[in-house]
Design a protein around this nucleic acid. Structure first.
Lengths: 138, 138
DNA sequence: TGAACTGTAAAAGTTACGATTACAGTAACA
DNA sequence: TGTTACTGTAATCGTAACTTTTACAGTTCA
């Protein structure tokens, strides 16, 4: 699984606990244990979707732009990792019934798998994640 | 997604079309477009599960050892790729509520996701894949 | 005995991923 | 207005993961 997905969840959860002020990529990166540039890269995707807002310059940073329960993990997955389940098997061999058609068959199967994954991920909103984090602490 | 998974499906489907005789790793590797050693490596896992049998020496190779409809994609996934959905986020940051607990929360979520994936993959047997390959050709 | 296989380990090559560096642009504030 | 603190983004570099390749021991059959 693409780690951009979990990094986006992490960042959004972080922001969810600070909805009254902006958080810098430095602060988030420290929480997530990755480089700040990666945070900015991932968050720029979320910004394009309107999930968060950002502000440059002194006192700038990132902040939530929607209600916590209006963003679910499937939304995030689609932005950061859509198609990640698909295998890369590029090779086809036209001389062989299997080699020639396996690629398309697998594509269909993984498409269905991603759909099922979507149904599951839709049930988790950022608000849910925040609650789970709190329960985990207790 | 781990390509061992698709390689195993490919190999088993190949064998499914030749249940009356043995197939060599060379033949399968040509169909799948990978190196024969990889085929042998993946198939050795399937052999341990009793899905296939193998025979060394002249005229040897691999052959199906079960009914085609007794092996489904979830069985294969478990052997080749279990836990592949889990992200690698190793870092935890005890100074931060999110950083400290996100790992466990995500672990639970991905565990559930893999279970859902399992429910989906269980519906596809090798026999189904063979049929899909034939339909694809037509 | 030699040819055709599997079974494995180890080395070498390649690709994908993430960190790092660099720098342009923007905003606040002294 | 100039310095500091940020985002935004591209490019380079290092490293880990994945594949191929090589190598060779073991097995089977003719």
């Amino acid at each position: 699984m693409n780690s951009d997905f979990t990094l986006a969840i992490h960042s959004l959860t972080y922001l969810a606990l600070q909805t009254d002020r902006m958080s810098t990529s430095d602060a988030i990166s420290e929480s997530a244990g990755v480089h700040p540039v990666r945070i900015r890269k991932v968050l720029s995707l979320l910004k394009k979707q309107g999930f968060i807002a950002s502000k440059e310059g002194t006192g700038g940073g990132f902040i939530f732009a929607m209600d916590l329960s209006d963003i679910n993990l499937w939304d995030i997955y689609k932005i950061t990792s859509e198609g990640a389940l698909q295998p890369k098997c590029t090779a086809t061999n036209d001389k062989c019934l299997v080699g020639a058609n396996m690629k398309n068959v697998l594509f269909q199967i993984f498409l269905g798998a991603e759909e099922k994954l979507g149904d599951y991920l839709k049930d988790y909103t950022i608000k849910d994640i925040v609650e789970m984090i709190h329960q985990e602490k207790a």
